[in-house]
């Protein structure tokens, strides 16, 4: 295919991505250096109350938004790195680690660092769990009776396709009030464990939820890959006296390696933007993620204004994070491509 023809074919798609992805990115970068302020003016207001003989009048100086056509007038001010400073709070960081500061405990009071800590823990802890669980299910299913495989795959797909917010809610409802799992935990441990009361149990639930949600994806990919393992190699391994574990270690796992890289890549991208389960569990009092931080800055606050500048700064920082996480995998893909080409 000629380059010109290719360009015609991809034009609509590329145009959409340029207008709705690249352009917003550029504008977020630009916005992160500005603050939109509502203009206020000082107004002298005289308010009088009827009294005996004379009115009592007081004048006071009030500041109120300047209105034009019924809308408050706003101005955009260039503030440089101010938004980034407000999000990352370097002053508070320095204070936390200078003598008399509270160390890490203080750092965790700052939304951005709290979100970064949680997002990274979440991404890196769920990654091996998802791959491990997916692999075990795939290996187990591979030995199951053929007629049972269809139903098991059907049931396994349910956690994967369910709306994430709803999935998180359905797990939360198992614990609500005196829910069945709360009762089960009390029966198991003999203590009253309330899962949604303290930070660490919520964190465990958030991680568990994500593993439950994504393991089916890893499982399906690995299961399909298991069907393409070279049977001749397996047989010669048996002839050479390899045990079941050795066959797994030296034949099957190397065959699965590229599929694991694929699952890891997709999972890194998806886990890094953890958001829905925080909404579903209403976990924001204890744990927030980077994406949740931006979201909450974008939502209108009490007075109806949105902190667009700070949201943009936190967006840019979020983006830098995911690019940094992905670089090793991207470099690998790049090298593979060049070796092939």
């Amino acid at each position: 295919m000629k380059t010109r023809t290719l360009l015609w074919f991809v034009a609509p798609s590329v145009a959409l991505m340029l207008v709705f992805i690249a352009l917003p990115l550029a504008s977020v970068f630009w916005q992160s250096f500005f603050v939109t302020r509502t203009l206020f003016q000082e107004v002298t207001v005289e308010s009088c109350q009827p009294g005996f003989l004379t009115q009592t009048c007081t004048t006071e100086l009030r500041s109120q938004p300047i209105l034009r056509d019924g809308k408050p007038v706003t101005e955009r001010v260039f503030v440089g790195w101010e938004n980034y400073r407000l999000v990352m709070r370097p002053d508070a960081l320095v204070a936390a680690f200078s003598p008399g500061g509270g160390g890490w405990a203080d750092v965790r009071q700052i939304d951005f660092w709290r979100a970064l800590r949680f997002t990274l823990t979440f991404t890196l802890v769920t990654l091996p769990l998802v791959i491990g669980l997916g692999l075990v299910i795939a290996l187990a299913l591979n030995t199951a009776i053929a007629s049972l495989r269809g139903p098991i795959i059907f049931v396994s797909l349910l956690p994967f396709i369910i709306t994430p917010v709803v999935g998180a809610l359905s797990i939360r409802w198992l614990f609500i009030g005196d829910g069945i799992l709360t009762a089960a935990l009390r029966w198991l441990t003999g203590e009253n464990v309330i899962m949604f009361a303290q930070g660490w149990t919520i964190e465990v639930l958030l991680l568990t939820y994500r593993v439950w949600h994504v393991a089916p994806f890893a499982f399906i990919v690995f299961y399909a890959a298991l069907q393409t393992v070279n049977q001749d190699t397996l047989e010669s391994a048996v002839v050479d006296g390899a045990s079941r574990f050795e066959r797994l270690r030296y034949v099957i796992l190397p065959h699965l390696a590229p599929f694991m890289v694929f699952v890891a890549l997709i999972h890194l991208m998806d886990a890094y933007r953890v958001f829905d389960e925080i909404v579903g569990f209403s976990a924001q009092a204890h744990h927030i993620s980077l994406q949740w931080l931006t979201y909450s800055l974008l939502m209108p606050d009490g007075s109806g204004s949105r902190a667009i500048g700070r949201a943009s700064a936190s967006s840019m920082l979020t983006m830098i994070g995911i690019v940094a996480l992905l670089i090793p995998l991207l470099v690998r893909t790049w090298r593979d491509h060049h070796q092939k080409g």
Binding site: T294, T318, H337
Partner: peptide
């Protein structure tokens, strides 16, 4: 074609709130 695909891969990784921050204003 290769570059379009790689760019698309990077775009896929972007958290959606990053983009929404660009759409809202």
């Amino acid at each position: 074609a290769f570059w379009i695909l790689v760019t698309a891969l990077i775009f896929r990784a972007l958290p959606h709130s990053v983009l929404v921050a660009g759409y809202l204003p």
